[in-house]
C-alpha cells in the first residue's frame, strides 16, 4: 500500500496546477523511491515529467509499484479544499479503486477526508535520452513567464538564441515584431534574480509560445527556471522543487 505524508499540501497543489492544462488524465507512478509522472499532451508536441522523491514526504511508505490513474480536473477539485499549509496524507491500497486524501490544518484541530475514484490509464512511457545540451540558461521564473506572455501577444512562435553572454527571445507577427535580450549577470544579494548561461556552442531554436506560456504555470514551484537547448532536439524547461522537479520537454519547429 501507499502512505505518503506531505508537510505542505501546497506542493501537490502547485504541481497539479502546473500540469493540468497540458494533460488531463495521467498515472502517478508510486514506488519505494517516490511518486513520478510522465505524460504527453494530446498533440504529442510536449511532454511533462514530474518527480517527487520519497525524501519530500515524512513518513513515506510504498512497498510495491502502484499506478494511480487520475483525472487531473477531479484532483484539482479535491485539492481546492486544502490550504497550502495543510498537512496532506495520501493513501491507496495495492490495487486501488480510489485514492484517499486527508488534509489537516497546522493546529491539528481540523481534518478533511476525500476519496477520489481512480481510472485505468494505458500510458506509454517514453525513453528520454541523456542529452549534453549546447546551452543551459537559468533565469528568474517570473521573468521567463513575463517574456513568454508578452511575446505571445505578437506571435505564435519565439526564437530563442543563446550566446556566450546573453540569451535573446524574439518573435515576429502580423502587427510587428519584438525581442527581449537578457544579459548574463549575477545578483549577489538576490541570487534568484541572476541570469546565468553555460554555453558549449551558440544555439538558435524556434518554439511554440502557446506551450511555453502553459509551462510557465509552474512558476509558483520555483523562483528560477532552467532552459536547456541543443539544435534540433526538444527544449527542456525545468522547475526544481525541494525534493523533486517538474520538467517540460517541447519539440522544436524546424525548417523554413
Amino acid at each position: 500500500m501507499l502512505e505518503a505524508r506531505l508537510e505542505q499540501a501546497g506542493v501537490l497543489k502547485k504541481v497539479v496546477e502546473a500540469i493540468k492544462d497540458l494533460v488531463q488524465d495521467c498515472n502517478f507512478d508510486c514506488n519505494d523511491s517516490g511518486i513520478a509522472l510522465q505524460a504527453m499532451d494530446n498533440s504529442h508536441v510536449a511532454l511533462v515529467s514530474m518527480s517527487l522523491s520519497h525524501e519530500g514526504f515524512s513518513p513515506y511508505r510504498c512497498d510495491r509499484n502502484i499506478a494511480l490513474g487520475i483525472n487531473l480536473n477531479s484532483l484539482t477539485k479535491v485539492l481546492r479544499a486544502a490550504q497550502n499549509e495543510d498537512i496532506l496524507t495520501l493513501k491507496a491500497a495495492d490495487s486501488p479503486d480510489s485514492l484517499n486524501l486527508v488534509f489537516e490544518n497546522t493546529e491539528r484541530d481540523r481534518s478533511s477526508e476525500y476519496d477520489i475514484k481512480l481510472m485505468d490509464i494505458d500510458q506509454e512511457h517514453l525513453g528520454i535520452p541523456d542529452t549534453d545540451y549546447s546551452a543551459t540558461v537559468v533565469l528568474p521564473s517570473a521573468e521567463f513567464q513575463r517574456i513568454c506572455r508578452d511575446l505571445s501577444q505578437l506571435s505564435e512562435s519565439v526564437t530563442i538564441e543563446a550566446s556566450k553572454s546573453s540569451v535573446k527571445f524574439s518573435c515576429s507577427g502580423d502587427i510587428g515584431n519584438g525581442s527581449v535580450n537578457l544579459r548574463q549577470h549575477q545578483d549577489l544579494e538576490k541570487p534568484d534574480q541572476s541570469t546565468s548561461i553555460e554555453l558549449v556552442e551558440p544555439v538558435s531554436l524556434t518554439f511554440s509560445l502557446k506551450y511555453l506560456v502553459n509551462f510557465c504555470k509552474a512558476s509558483a514551484l520555483s523562483p528560477t527556471v532552467k532552459l536547456s537547448l541543443s539544435t534540433d532536439v526538444p527544449l527542456l524547461v525545468e522547475y526544481k522543487m525541494e525534493a523533486g522537479y517538474v520538467r517540460f520537454y517541447l519539440a522544436p519547429k524546424i525548417g523554413d
Binding site: V45, A251, K253
Partner: peptide, 14 residues
C-alpha cells in the same frame, strides 16, 4: 513556415 515537430520523433517509444 516552420513545421512543428512532435516529441515522438525524438524520444523512444517502448
Amino acid at each position: 513556415g516552420r513545421k512543428q515537430q512532435t516529441i515522438l520523433s525524438f524520444f523512444k517509444q517502448p
